[in-house]
Computed example of a mutant assay.
Amino acid sequence: MLPNLIKSQVVARFNEFITKQLLEGALTTFSNYSIQDEDVDVVWVPGSFEIGVTAQRLASLGKYHAILCIGAVIRGDTTHYDAVANSAASGVLSAGLQSGVPCIFGVLTCDDMEQAINRAGGKSGNKGAETAMTAIEMASLFEHQLK
């Protein structure tokens, strides 16, 4: 459907058990819409905190029509969760606003591992797949209607 729209995905290695499943959901969705593997670049970063700055750098390259930002922040016993979740959201938003490239927020923010598993292909579906659909829609909108 949209093979000429190049996508990039920034994926956090922290909680990789979850982020790999989200990535697979996104890649399957892209494939279902005839977006070839060679039109999708995957960039791994240490954690969700590093997603925003990486998305900003990728957007500045001028070769991507959308950037998918995938991560998983799971609440623990400290306030670290709040800082990382808020920073990830702010970073992705800032990258999109500053670059003009749609940067799609696909970072799960869950209370526990069970919630994360359910949102990464469990009973709540795969949020990576949903995020890929948002990237397709936004890339198409920017490329065809907002040019």
Rank of each mutant, 00 (worst) to 15 (best):
I70W: 07
Q21R: 13
Q36E: 15
N118I: 03
T109L: 00
G25L: 02
H144L: 07
Q56V: 00
R57Y: 13
S34V: 05
F105D: 10
V42T: 13
L58Q: 04
V53R: 07
Y64I: 07
A135C: 15
G128Q: 09
G52F: 05
T79A: 06
A116T: 02
M138I: 08
D82Q: 01
R119P: 01
M133C: 11
L108G: 02
H144D: 06
G96C: 05
Q115D: 10
Y64H: 11
S34P: 03
G122L: 12
A12F: 01
L141V: 14
H65F: 07
K63C: 12
T134V: 14
I18L: 09
V53Y: 04
Q115S: 11
P3L: 12
I74E: 06
M113P: 00
N126R: 08
P3E: 15
S60K: 15
W44P: 11
T29L: 14
A132Q: 03
Q21M: 09
S140D: 13
I6H: 15
N126F: 10
K63N: 12
G100Q: 07
A55H: 01
H80T: 05
A85E: 06
G52V: 03
I6K: 15
A89C: 07
Y64K: 10
L146Q: 08
R75Q: 02
I117F: 06
Q145V: 11
L2C: 02
E38A: 12
Y81A: 04
L58I: 08
M133H: 07
I70S: 05
S8R: 06
Q115I: 07
C69Y: 05
D82E: 15
S31H: 14
D39N: 15
T28L: 12
I136W: 01
A139T: 12
V11P: 08
E16L: 06
A116Q: 03
S60I: 00
H65R: 06
G122C: 12
I117M: 09
S90Q: 14
E16I: 02
L61V: 12
F30C: 04
S31K: 14
A26Q: 03
M133V: 11
E16V: 05
G125E: 09
S31P: 00
M1N: 10
E130V: 08
P3S: 14
A55F: 00
D77M: 00
P46K: 03
Q115K: 13
R119C: 09
G100C: 08
N4E: 14
T131N: 03
A132M: 04
C103Y: 14
C110F: 02
S124T: 06
L97T: 11
W44G: 11
E50T: 07
A89G: 04
A85W: 03
G121D: 04
L108A: 00
V43Y: 06
Q145I: 14
L58E: 06
Q56D: 14
D39P: 00
I35K: 11
T19N: 04
F30I: 07
L108W: 08
L97C: 01
G106M: 05
Q98D: 15
I18E: 05
N15Y: 00
T29Q: 10
D82M: 01
R57N: 14
I74W: 01
S124Y: 13
R119S: 02
G125Y: 10
I18T: 13
L93H: 13
D111W: 05
N118S: 13
